[in-house]
Structures are given as structure tokens and as C-alpha cells.
Design a protein around this nucleic acid. Structure first.
Lengths: 104, 104
DNA sequence: CTTGACACCTAGCAATCCGAGGTATAGGCT
DNA sequence: AGCCTATACCTCGGATTGCTAGGTGTCAAG
């Protein structure tokens, strides 16, 4: 898939991934790849800055943990993050519907 | 709708609009607004450069006409443009499907 | 004769995704 | 021991792209 298609939708995708439960950055990337059947195979340089920004916006909260000697930063949705996810879903439906109407 | 959502999909939308028949730039904007029920209300500075680029890429062809004293540049899909539209539709389906899988 | 709709155009700004590079641990292979 | 891969984090700069702001000009209505 073309990279530019993702722009403006990545926040929703990451919020959506974390809607299934807390996860650390690397796991978010894996989860996205899996759920999308390989369509979204994102670079770390794409995902990490977004996680930081979403946390700065108060939509995510993070905590450091250690699993088998490796440090992980686990992110979870805040209450505002969950509300943002709901909003993102609505925006997506509207957007997708509009595109269908034009491309049909 | 957020502006960034459009990135990467605008070419497809414009090709899709012209898939219904030739039109001049201003009409493309109106048509997009109508077909999307107001969701896509694009600025001229957004659309015109894209039309020029798509023509430069050989996906569109244009011809100047005059209607009631006003000059219009009418665009139509070339054969390659129609093929590109088909490809764009497929890419859109794949993208939309992947997003649904993540957001669901 | 001014306002609004129509119709075209361009230059530069702002946002964002990605590539490239860096650091570090664990485990398997040679 | 040494090396490679997978895991796991990070940042900087580049490329692309849509939008804002500005410009030109015609026509019809008030």
C-alpha cells in the first residue's frame, strides 16, 4: 500500500489497536500487521513518534515494565483516549462512506 | 473532516469523479461536494495542482473551451487514466478493509 | 458599480509518514 | 567467544501533499 494513504488515519489505527487492551510499542506494530493481514507493516520511526504525541495529548498513558530482561513501555487508553477512539470510528465511517459514494 | 485524511486518496477521488464523464476543474470540485454530500468541500488550491499533475502523468487529457464567455479547461480520463482508476478502486477496497479489521 | 458566483492559476506553509541511523538485551548457531 | 537475528526503545531529516492566501478575469444581479 502507498504510504500517503495512511496519513490522517494512523492515530485512529493505533487507538484502535490499543482498544483491545494495553500493549507496548513493538507489540502495537505486530498487532497492526496481524490484524490487517500484512497491509499495515509500519516502520518503528512511524509508530513511536505517534505514541509519544498521543500520550502528550492525553489520549494514552504509559508505564515502564520489564519482561525477560527487556524494557518495555506499555501504553493504555485513557478515558479521553477511549472517547477519541469512538470519535475516530465515526469519522472513519463518514470518510469511507463519502469515498464509496465518489468511487462507486 | 480532517484535512490529512484525504492525503493519498485525492487522486483516486478526482479520477473517480472524471470516471462519470469529462468535466472542468470547477465542476470537479462541485461534483465532489455533491457526491460526498458535503464531506469533500475542497479548495481550488487543492484540486488544480492535482489536475495538472495527473495530466503530466498521462492519466488525464485537457482541452480549452469557452462557455458563456468564460474559459474552461475540460479534463477527461485517458486510457491509462481509466486503468489507474480501476487500480485506485482496488487499492481503496484493500485499504478500507484493513482499516475495518483494525477498528472493528 | 459593487457584490457574488464562476473559473483559472501559483507560491509557500504545515503536517505527517518513512528511511536511516543509533542503543541495548536475549537466545541460537558456529 | 563471536556473530546474527529478534525484540525493544529512540530521534533526525527528507519527501510528499493538501491548504491558505493571494492573484487574474468574466458575467449576472441588485
Amino acid at each position: 500500500m502507498k504510504a500517503e494513504q495512511l496519513k490522517g488515519h494512523l492515530d485512529a489505527l493505533i487507538l484502535g489497536t490499543l482498544g483491545g487492551g494495553p500493549a507496548h510499542g513493538y507489540a502495537v506494530i505486530e498487532e497492526l500487521k496481524q490484524r490487517s493481514a500484512g497491509t499495515f507493516d509500519l516502520a518503528e520511526g512511524t509508530v513511536y513518534p505517534v505514541l509519544h504525541r498521543l500520550e502528550a495529548e492525553g489520549l494514552l498513558a504509559s508505564a515502564w515494565t520489564t519482561a525477560s530482561g527487556r524494557k518495555r513501555r506499555v501504553y493504555r487508553l485513557t478515558r479521553r483516549g477511549r472517547a477519541a477512539l469512538d470519535g475516530s470510528r465515526r469519522e472513519w465511517r463518514a470518510f469511507a462512506h463519502a469515498v464509496e459514494a465518489v468511487l462507486a
